[in-house]
Design a binder for these strands. Structure first.
Lengths: 155, 155
DNA sequence: TTGTTCTTGACAAGAATTGTCAACATAATC
DNA sequence: GATTATGTTGACAATTCTTGTCAAGAACAA
């Protein structure tokens, strides 16, 4: 339960962009196709842009597209961007681990590091090309999305 | 960075109890030997007790000890007790996953589930007997702990 | 009865998360 | 140039989680 909503939303947006090879997608479209509040994507997309992962164009016919091949964007890159270190605990990060008076001979830390490495290995081994290749359902067929906004037919 | 302090503290306390095969350890001793604030252990230990992992005795000569063999207490059990589900995200828990309109054909969720399973596999494969067998430093030799409380010799 | 120890519940301070909004900048089109 | 469509930015409120602390109470032994 440690992947934040923003991380979730960012990966969703990138998966849709990976599936939409060509033209730019507007923020509104992107929000609709990923079932993400547009107001949150407003925050998420600029972060992806600053990181060089997506590119944007303004004005009519503007929108977002990938800034590099989907095969070159790993899940690790994106999760790191929004989550920071992937270690489950501060004493087990690879860079600048949090000091702990019990770290010497600590076998608990060994396990935390194994979890960290397994996580990195999995996230680092998956690109958005991989994710796009096997995606289905509403990902490839937007009409399968309920798109139930404010008020359903009730009254 | 998803393992909470309380989880950290609980596992530390259990590791020390596993190393101290025999007599009960008082809360104060346990706090000292694990470098954990006693006031927090006051909250953590009863949780371990209610879960049947440790046993307690009150009065003088009281304290805590393991309620079962260290080889029968897995890290998974303890982490679950304090963290809840081990999945990185709500849609990927094994029981009652959080519903998501994008779950059909979602390859992202596949990866989250792989991370969940790898985490469970690692945590489930380690017992406190394993952890105790290889521990060293201040874990086996408490005198190596700085135990620097309020005011060091400075004046 | 006294002293030691665990037990419980309430709590405050702080941090992180989540979602929203308004004002602004840029680009195309009329 | 005016207008419209779009991304950009920063501030923000509400909520929830985390962390540590404390005081009063219950059990046990001497």
């Amino acid at each position: 339960m440690w992947v934040s909503r923003r991380t979730d939303y960012a990966t969703r947006a990138l998966l849709v962009l990976s599936l939409e090879g060509g033209g730019p997608l507007k923020l509104e479209e992107l929000a609709g196709r990923t079932a993400v509040p547009q107001s949150v994507l407003e925050q998420v997309m600029p972060t992806l842009r600053t990181a060089g992962i997506v590119r944007s164009e303004r004005g009519p016919a503007g929108g977002y597209r990938l800034n590099k091949a989907a095969a070159e964007i790993t899940l690790e890159r994106v999760v790191r961007l929004f989550q920071g270190p992937l270690a489950p605990i501060g004493c087990a990060t690879r860079h600048n681990p949090e000091p702990c008076p019990m770290s010497l001979g600590c076998t608990l830390r060994d396990v935390w590091e194994e979890i960290r490495d397994a996580t990195i290995s999995l996230l680092g081994g998956v690109t958005f090309a991989d994710l796009a290749a096997r995606a289905g359902g509403p990902w490839t067929n937007p009409s399968l999305l309920a798109t139930a906004p404010a008020e359903p037919a009730a009254g």
